[in-house]
């Protein structure tokens, strides 16, 4: 999503949790602004995701009602674009590359180890909201395969046995958290 569309910084960046009422008011504004614009659904969804960090079901239902559009259609649009997510994402977005090079050089084992370590499946977020796990396609670092991308940083030649160390290093460095602009 282009930066210029980004509204006020999201909750996690501001450090303070934003009240539900503020979020809902923001959603009402977004709906009011876009409901009559041709093609207004996608920008409205982008702004909503930027506001909440993801697309919560009640927000989508509100958008469906506000736009006078069946919920199935709103859901269809959300599920068509991979940059929309209906689950909250963790502070760190872990993407294990499943491109051909990474795959043949152990990417699959890395993914399995990662799932085990975090105790979540692909598409899920840990209970403490720290890590979300996804698979990625080629990050352009095939020479260093297998790679794992955590937020902005590419980690190369990852060994399944050393996943724990990797995650601890990430936490220690307190990397820049995932922002909603990330696809």
């Amino acid at each position: 999503m282009p930066k210029k569309n980004a509204p006020a910084p999201c909750a996690c960046q501001a450090g303070e949790p934003v009240s539900k009422a503020t979020l809902d008011a923001r959603l009402d504004e977004v709906i009011a602004e876009y409901k009559d614009k041709p093609g207004g659904l996608i920008p409205a969804l982008q702004l909503t995701q930027a506001t909440f960090g993801y697309l919560p079901e009640p927000a989508l239902k509100k958008i469906s009602a506000g736009f006078g559009m069946p919920y199935s259609e709103v859901a269809g649009v959300v599920s068509f674009y991979s940059f929309f997510t209906t689950h909250p994402r963790g502070k760190y977005l872990v993407r294990v590359c499943m491109g051909t090079a990474c795959y043949v050089r152990g990417g699959k084992d890395v993914l399995e180890a990662m799932k085990k370590k975090l105790a979540i499946d692909v598409g899920q977020t840990t209970g403490d909201r720290l890590f979300s796990l996804e698979v990625g396609r080629c990050f352009g670092a095939c020479g260093m395969a297998p790679v794992v991308m955590i937020n902005e940083t590419v980690h190369q030649r990852v060994k399944p046995a050393r996943i724990g160390d990797l995650l601890n290093r990430v936490l220690a460095a307190d990397e820049k958290p995932a922002t909603q602009e990330r696809p």
């Binding site: 559009m69 069946p70 919920y71 199935s72 259609e73 709103v74 859901a75 269809g76 959300v78 599920s79 068509f80 209906t86």
Partner: peptide
């Protein structure tokens, strides 16, 4: 469902080969 019945319970979900025609979020 959408145009004749005005209900709109069904819509394509997802994209490409994985598209499923059905209710919201399959």
């Amino acid at each position: 469902c959408a145009e004749v019945q005005g209900v709109g319970a069904l819509f394509p979900q997802g994209r490409g080969f994985a598209t499923v025609i059905g209710p919201a979020f399959t």
